[in-house]
Design a protein around this nucleic acid. Sequence first.
DNA 1: TATTCATGCCCGTACCGCTCC
DNA 2: GGGAGCGGTACGGGCATGAAT
Lengths: 345, 345
Amino acid sequence: MPRPKRDGAASDRARVSMADVAQAAGVSAQTVSRVLSGQGTVREGTRAAVDDAVRRLGYQPNLAARTLATGRTRRLGIIVTGSSTSRVMVEAGAEAATRRLGYRLTAAVVSTTGIRSLRRAADQLRSDGAEGIIVAAPVTARDRWTPKGFPVVSLDDATAGSPEFVTDQRAIGRMATEHLLELGHRTVWCVCGPAQWPEAKARVEGWRAALVDAGAPVPDVLHGDWTPAEGYRMGALIATDPSVTGIFATSDELAIGVSHALWEVGRRVPDDVSVVGVDDIPIAAYLCPPLTTVRQPFATLTDAAVRLLVSKLDKNTPPPLGGSADPESTRPSLVVRASTAAPSL
Amino acid sequence: MPRPKRDGAASDRARVSMADVAQAAGVSAQTVSRVLSGQGTVREGTRAAVDDAVRRLGYQPNLAARTLATGRTRRLGIIVTGSSTSRVMVEAGAEAATRRLGYRLTAAVVSTTGIRSLRRAADQLRSDGAEGIIVAAPVTARDRWTPKGFPVVSLDDATAGSPEFVTDQRAIGRMATEHLLELGHRTVWCVCGPAQWPEAKARVEGWRAALVDAGAPVPDVLHGDWTPAEGYRMGALIATDPSVTGIFATSDELAIGVSHALWEVGRRVPDDVSVVGVDDIPIAAYLCPPLTTVRQPFATLTDAAVRLLVSKLDKNTPPPLGGSADPESTRPSLVVRASTAAPSL
DNA sequence: TATTCATGCCCGTACCGCTCC
DNA sequence: GGGAGCGGTACGGGCATGAAT
């Protein structure tokens, strides 16, 4: 006997099911399924009848039922941290790429990047139906921290195993540093994000290599988190040192904090000190002075990560191209604005 | 006959089901369900046995099956637009509130706020299983734009019908304007977000009311979108006018663009012109000079909106308190920094 | 061979019924 | 006999498989 129609509220009142479509089209539910999935052969007339019924009734497939039957959710998860502009750009890029492949994306925000937080976030995403996750946060643990059969792709090359497609973070540090050296700065100081972030580490390596190649002295690196507040704190440590004339901050938000510290002690950008950031966030061009920065191709990065993850879930989707990918689209680019200039004498 | 175990890849290989738990605990699946849901009566010993089995087997309920059986997804959607920092804050607040009530949140980003975009976003969220949506974008259409039985709550009071709990946007405009008038400015110019956004409109109303109350002249309002680029464009229109000494921008990002326009023509903030923003985004305190701004209690706002929506889906959850809510927690606050000062003579 | 249909099953939950005190 | 405690059965809406025309 039919169960009483679901109690008001959130029920899908009178929602059309596949059986309704089948009846309207005069075929079996199975045939409707075939038509909609494109699998199997269906006569042209039958297909038209089904398509017509679908449109007439406004049929929308029930995701829960499909998931239950197939064991597939077609949902991915992403773990992000902080509230920086770059994280938003990463999330947006991942969302777009995910949808392009016919998947959905759920995000989990972690406040700390310890293994416990990551594990909890992974659990949450999994219970939310994620079939795999993208990690846009540092993973220091060598051991497995996700359940078996739950693929993980990291935005950096630490765990992805396909470093070819990732933006060359070392190049970012090198470009910024060489730009300042070419302007005539004797050396470049580095204000850096958390040491455990591979991105931060790689940018520092690029910075160091550029200095060494140029025979310039290599100052100590300052480390903090990614917030402007930390940029300010670190900037204040070196702001009054007259030998500091060029600073490479590993994110725009850090650069803003650094600039503020300089401003506070009366040193002008770029007259007294030049500052370079990374990311090219939307406001970078409107700071006073506009910030010179290294732009990253976030979209390419996230697209590759998502594609790599999906290729692990679905044998029909090939992994990203890797080494043969268009290098142009993965290369960072220096955006020269007014926060950098030749050092004053 | 058992279907061949799901083909590798993304299958839930050997995932434990309720029946497994039931067998391990020596009870029926029904009893396991009762224990887990807390509904119905179960003897203490039985409950312990089930709990133990759940832990031992690492059982995790299958959301798809539950959804199919109950008709409830316990998922909400949110429609956001732009990539401003404030939208991120809104999204984060909504996510937290949603999870507190045992729901999940999916976001849909729209690039334009026309009725077609909104409808498409709503469809997308619904097909993703959302039972209702929160709209953090302007809704100008008077007519119904969502399917019936699909509740919508807007972050502003245009459609929510419960204006009591919403931040008083007029107060924001008033506070900023009065602050500048008190400093001695003859009048205050207004650089505003899109006219169709209720927040923008209300802030302008507050600004106008403050001017009228003070007997100050009321300049024309400048309208654009929420980006710093538009703030710059609008700022450039008035930057060279020497009578302009105080500007109220309806977001921090607009204020940054405005400040840039002033800077470009050689007018200093706050010496020549004072600027006030809205939102207090993280970098506001680190701009040069630090930005005076009006902070909004985003968390309170989003919490109320989510609660209101859930109360429509679940009769057991009461709606937010409305008029009797703690006014302190919903009131905006002026954060005075260095971008405002008395006008020079 | 080309189409189509009928059945079983995915995994929880609602409802009803059966014990046993 | 009424209630506590528990099990059996029928779904929900799709998809996979094999049978049937």
